[in-house]
Simulated scan of single mutants.
Amino acid sequence: MARRMTTEDWIVSSVNYALLAVITLITLYPFYYLIIVSFNSGQDTLLGGIYFWPRDFTLENYQAFFSDSKWVKAFGISVLRTVVGGAAGVFFTCLVAYGLSYKDLLFKKLYFVLVIIAMYFSGGLIPYYVLLRELHLINTFWVYVIPSLLNIFFLLIAVSFFREIPKELHESAKIDGANDLSIFFRIIIPVSMPLIATMGLFIGVGQWNSWLDSAYFVQSENLRTLTYRMMEIINQSNISQEAAAFGRGSSSVTSFSIQVTAMVIAVAPIMCVYPFLQKYFVKGMMLGSVKE
């Protein structure tokens, strides 16, 4: 039988819902503001006073964005590095973690010592640049992918997750003649979807948002990422020249309107992907938190 709510319960619930509504508004309104500004005339936006809907609705900001080849190329590079880098990072991290999860692995303590050292210490930017140069990764697409193949944070989580998988699954598969790779692909991967989805979400978002590697290790304009282009336009000192370049003669497109449009386009893919991974993401957040 449900307990009847008292006056105090009503007051507490009302305060909680009011606070949640305020927090939700504060959280969502900035992104909503970017959306309405991206659909508003750039020159009209400079006048201010836009709060809830576009005052001078236009699609010229998006037309200017997609008509500029460097923005389109940057968007394609960001998508490609997110898909390739995210998938490769998840696969390689899981593969290494699966090997480290074996209790009878030779030199296992040494491997974990190296992992911990790599987690807390780095050689610095200049040695890192020299290493990438010696590997012939500078100014190539693979500089976005290969250095991020192993995510040490998720490596430790994956090792803990794989250790909790019942040994009987391994033993029964080996009795049937399966080798370690067959066990990994046919048994471990299917039962590790919460882990893989969580890793894919975080690693993919990291790849999508990264811009430092594009600034430091890439010189070709054809390999610039979307986030680098956004930082580039934010740091422009001469807004009038940038507006003329993006507007292509249009009087309604400004540097700020293109910048906001780029932000909306950069955030939209992540928001579209997240709902499909949410059920796995919630499970994945609990990985390693409960031990039997």
Results as ranks from 00 to 15, higher is better:
197 A>M: 14
132 L>H: 00
184 F>I: 05
116 I>F: 11
143 V>F: 05
60 E>S: 12
257 S>Q: 04
246 F>S: 14
200 G>A: 06
6 T>N: 13
204 G>P: 01
165 I>F: 01
85 G>I: 06
27 T>G: 03
37 V>T: 15
96 V>T: 08
281 F>M: 07
2 A>P: 11
148 S>E: 09
162 F>G: 08
192 S>N: 07
291 K>Y: 00
267 V>H: 02
214 S>P: 03
20 L>Y: 09
91 F>C: 11
104 D>N: 13
218 V>S: 02
259 Q>V: 01
148 S>I: 11
276 F>R: 02
1 M>W: 13
147 P>C: 00
284 G>H: 05
55 R>D: 11
95 L>I: 06
290 V>F: 04
196 I>A: 09
286 M>T: 15
248 R>E: 15
149 L>V: 01
62 Y>K: 00
29 Y>S: 02
174 K>R: 15
278 Q>V: 08
118 A>I: 04
221 E>M: 09
129 Y>M: 10
133 R>G: 12
4 R>L: 15
246 F>A: 05
176 D>G: 11
276 F>L: 10
155 L>V: 10
102 Y>R: 15
231 M>R: 02
203 I>G: 07
159 V>A: 07
261 T>W: 00
88 A>W: 00
51 Y>M: 03
65 F>C: 05
156 L>F: 09
79 V>W: 01
243 A>P: 04
153 F>A: 10
208 W>C: 07
39 F>A: 09
215 A>C: 11
213 D>M: 03
93 T>Q: 09
276 F>W: 03
231 M>F: 14
56 D>Y: 08
110 L>D: 06
105 L>R: 08
254 T>H: 03
157 I>A: 02
18 A>S: 07
257 S>Y: 01
280 Y>G: 05
118 A>Y: 03
173 A>T: 06
54 P>N: 03
10 W>H: 15
42 G>Y: 01
61 N>Q: 10
280 Y>W: 14
101 S>D: 09
272 C>Q: 05
208 W>D: 11
88 A>V: 12
152 I>E: 11
37 V>D: 13
221 E>S: 14
260 V>I: 15
191 V>H: 12
86 G>N: 06
290 V>W: 03
61 N>D: 11
168 E>I: 10
100 L>H: 02
291 K>N: 14
246 F>Q: 12
34 L>G: 11
92 F>D: 04
228 Y>K: 10
161 F>N: 03
133 R>F: 00
231 M>L: 14
264 V>E: 04
224 R>G: 13
276 F>D: 07
138 I>P: 10
96 V>P: 10
196 I>K: 01
277 L>D: 02
138 I>C: 08
118 A>C: 10
273 V>D: 02
70 K>I: 14
94 C>I: 08
136 H>W: 01
32 Y>K: 05
29 Y>G: 04
77 I>F: 01
134 E>G: 07
36 I>H: 06
101 S>R: 00
249 G>A: 02
289 S>I: 10
127 P>R: 12
228 Y>D: 09
48 G>Y: 00
122 S>G: 14
190 P>M: 02
288 G>F: 04
93 T>N: 03
185 F>N: 08
145 V>D: 06
15 V>N: 04
43 Q>T: 13
161 F>H: 13
176 D>K: 12
161 F>P: 14
72 V>I: 13
